[in-house]
């Protein structure tokens, strides 16, 4: 697939930026997204090539302006929906419920 992920040889991304004493994960959602992706990979409904393909279907502009584990999240959600393990509606509904709970907790 000749998408935005195929970065080799492209110009214009600037210097390589390194972080001193970089942690393995930068936020808890990255940890959970990483583990969910591995666990669902082990579940066996798809293989690694399919996982990569699912990440690479992210729209090019979005791919280039989002973080690494957001690509994973995009791929995971797409595969879960495509394989019929979850529906988009139930994901949105669960997000709304969790949002409500956290709003309630904050007041």
């Amino acid at each position: 697939m000749n998408g935005a992920h195929d970065l080799g040889g492209m110009h214009g991304f600037g210097p390589v930026e390194r972080e001193r004493d970089e942690p393995v994960f930068h936020a808890d959602w990255e940890r959970r997204c990483f583990a969910l992706t591995l666990a669902m990979g082990a579940y066996g409904a798809w293989n690694l090539d399919a996982t990569r393909y699912a990440r690479e279907t992210m729209p090019a502009g979005e791919y280039l302006t989002t973080g690494y584990y957001e690509h994973w999240l995009h791929g995971l959600q797409r595969q879960l929906i495509e394989q019929g393990l979850l529906t988009r509606e139930e994901i949105e509904a669960r997000m709304a419920r969790l949002r409500g709970e956290s709003d309630h907790g904050a007041t």
């Binding site: 969910l36 669902m40 879960l80």
Partner: peptide, 17 residues
């Protein structure tokens, strides 16, 4: 963050993880 938590809670609920 919310989306990841939603996926996790659904997948746990369904016994998939």
């Amino acid at each position: 963050d919310l989306r990841v938590r939603a996926l996790e809670s659904l997948l746990v609920e369904k016994g998939l993880v």
